[in-house]
């Protein structure tokens, strides 16, 4: 059975390791924080200027001066810090943040990503996405394998305006875990009860299948 958004987040959470500083994008990536093992130490960075984000505040304790990049009210955990925007992107551009998890509209088999603009529609802007994808060494894309029209989002080449070139390393979708390699999308894991054929059908780009593909362990 294909995963839901929480399932995708749960699988990505297994990629988060002890001692990691992690930047989570809006949407499915935000859910990852709910599933990180509690026996490891991880700090979440939000690019508007906080490291060590905690859960949402209790009703009545929200503070207009403490928000995340989605403009939601948040809390901080012991050891947290605040900083300005230039320093925030120094953490990102300088590769001090270990892992970036973000959503995408399209990913190409060469690692290109498109997630900020659809021609003909109102463009809201890229926010910090271009800085994040251009700099992070370890980028995981969290997304559905196909769009609402049922078309593949894993393509030979992106059709939408790019956010970054050759930057995506790993993709976790509702159907599969894939690695971007020099020769295409290498299938690493299948979602429970999803067949390699199902994944092949939903993938427009080159899919590399080597040997038996294990099912995801969630």
């Amino acid at each position: 059975m294909a995963l839901d958004k929480n399932g995708i987040a749960k699988r990505i959470a297994k990629e988060v390791q002890d001692g990691y500083y992690v930047n989570l994008g809006i949407g499915i990536p935000t859910l990852v924080a709910n599933y990180v093992r509690d026996d490891i130490e991880v700090e979440f960075q939000s690019e508007n200027g906080v490291l060590g984000m905690g859960p949402f505040p209790f009703d009545g304790e929200e503070d207009a001066d403490i928000i995340n990049a989605g403009k939601q009210t948040i809390t901080t955990l012991p050891g947290a810090s605040f900083f300005d925007s230039a320093m925030s992107f120094s953490m990102i551009r300088g590769q001090h943040v270990h892992l970036t998890i973000l959503g995408a509209m399209e990913v190409a088999e060469n690692g290109d990503i498109a997630n900020w603009k659809i021609p003909g529609r109102m463009v809201k802007g890229m926010g910090g996405a271009m800085d994040l994808v251009a700099s992070a060494e370890n980028i995981i894309v969290a997304m559905m394998h196909t769009n609402k029209a049922g078309e593949s989002k894993l393509l030979k080449r992106c059709s939408l305006p790019l956010t970054g070139v050759g930057c995506v390393k790993k993709i976790v979708t509702n159907l599969a875990v894939l690695e971007v390699t020099d020769s295409g999308f290498k299938l690493l894991e299948r979602a429970p009860d999803v067949s390699v054929e199902d994944i092949q059908k939903a993938t427009e780009g080159t899919l590399i299948v080597e040997g038996d593909i294990p099912e995801m362990k969630l």
Binding site: E47, D84, S85, A86, S88, F89, I92, R93, M126, G127, G128, A129, M130, D131, A134, S135
Partner: peptide, 23 residues
């Protein structure tokens, strides 16, 4: 890009005419 916006401000503040960014 957000980081470029911040750095173009900081460059003006710090006396750099321009900066190179991968973004």
């Amino acid at each position: 890009p957000q980081g470029t916006l911040a750095e173009r401000c900081r460059a003006a503040q710090a006396g750099f005419p321009a900066v190179y960014t991968p973004a």
